[in-house]
């Protein structure tokens, strides 16, 4: 068996710097999108009806105090994880933020 990858596998096996978060649609998700759009001019938001997909290059940092301010109430890690349906990238929970960053490569 050859060690060389065929074209199909090679087309998938490529470096990607995109990270995403999928949020269950609703008031919390809309507030998060408002905060994230203001902080990330290149953020792409896609509405799939039941969920909102946020895409960015390299990182998404969700600052909980900013989201709480947008909502007008306290917003903590469990509140964020209640609406985070899925993500791609490496997640990390910190004291005041949840970040999704691209996996470190080579």
């Amino acid at each position: 068996m050859s060690d060389a990858m065929n074209d199909v596998t090679r087309s998938i096996w490529k470096e990607s710097h995109k990270v995403t978060a999928k949020l269950i649609n609703g008031a919390d998700a809309e507030a998060i999108v408002a905060v994230m759009t203001a902080a990330n001019p290149d953020l792409v938001v896609k509405d799939f009806g039941s969920y909102l997909a946020l895409e960015n290059e390299r990182e998404l940092v969700f600052r909980l105090a900013d989201i709480g301010e947008e909502l007008g109430r306290k917003f903590e890690v469990p509140d964020f994880l209640t609406v985070l349906a899925s993500y791609s990238g490496q997640v990390d929970v910190q004291d005041d933020a949840v970040s999704i960053t691209e996996f470190a490569s080579g």
């Binding site: 068996m1 596998t9 998938i12 096996w13 990270v19 990238g89 996996f103 490569s105």
Partner: peptide
């Protein structure tokens, strides 16, 4: 795209190679 490209491919740094039947699956 998201799993094989955005997740699995990142394991290459550990010496992991693509699965042998990826093209067949596609």
């Amino acid at each position: 795209d998201e799993f094989y490209g955005g997740f699995y491919q990142k394991l290459e740094r550990y010496g992991i190679r693509p699965p042998p039947r990826l093209d067949e699956q596609m």
